[in-house]
Each structure stands twice: as structure tokens, then as C-alpha cells.
Amino acid sequence: MIRALALILLCQLLGEAGARAAGLPIPGPVLGMALLWGLMSASGTLADLVRPVGEGILRHLSLLFVPAGVGVIGHLDRLGPQALALGAAIVASTALAIAAGAGAFVLVARLTGSRND
């Protein structure tokens, strides 16, 4: 477990350093994810090592957003007189983006014959 955790942190570290060094707009952990994905694809041993720990962290992904979420409560008044505009924009645009994204995926999947199996 410690080895898997060390590997995950190492990927994040390399991702952060790489993104910063190259001035990429990509967040370090996303680059680290790509790196770990590459390593897991290259080596079955590494994939078996990381899998249980990775699944363990992700099983409670929701928990990790709680501290930031609590911070939001104290800042709700910062929305101020624009709260209505922001609230409407967030709810409507999130719904539109979900519907449009899913629609585009299904449409192109049908056109290219990419089936869900």
C-alpha cells in the first residue's frame, strides 16, 4: 500500500513539476494521471500494485470535496446582488452542457459505430 501511495504521489509531483516547467494550462494532477495511466499500461505489475489503493481513494471521492464545500458557505454572501444572475447561469448552463455533451457523444457514437459493450 505504501509503495502504491508513493507511486501515486510521485506521479502527482512529476505532473506538478512538468506542468509548471512547461507552462502548460493543464493542472499538475491531471498530467500525473496521464503519467500513471501510461505506467499502468506499460507494466501489469505496476497496474496490479496501484489498483487496490487507487480504487480505495476513489471510493470516497465525495469526501474530498467536503472541506472546500464548507468554505463555500462562508462566501455565499460574496455573491451579493448578482446572486440571482450567477445562480440562474450555473443551473441553466450546467443542465444545457450535460444534455449537449451527452447528445454529442451519442450522435458521434452512432455515426462512427462505437457501441457500448
Binding site: 504521489l9 494532477p29 494521471m33 500513471l36 495511466w37 499502468m40
Partner: peptide
């Protein structure tokens, strides 16, 4: 949150 983002490689793999 950072390590969890990296760990997304597991389901992607």
C-alpha cells in the same frame, strides 16, 4: 484531491 485525481488513472486503465 490531488492524489485522487492521479488515481483516476486506475478506472481509465
Amino acid at each position: 484531491l490531488g492524489p485522487a485525481t492521479v488515481a483516476l488513472a486506475v478506472p481509465l486503465h
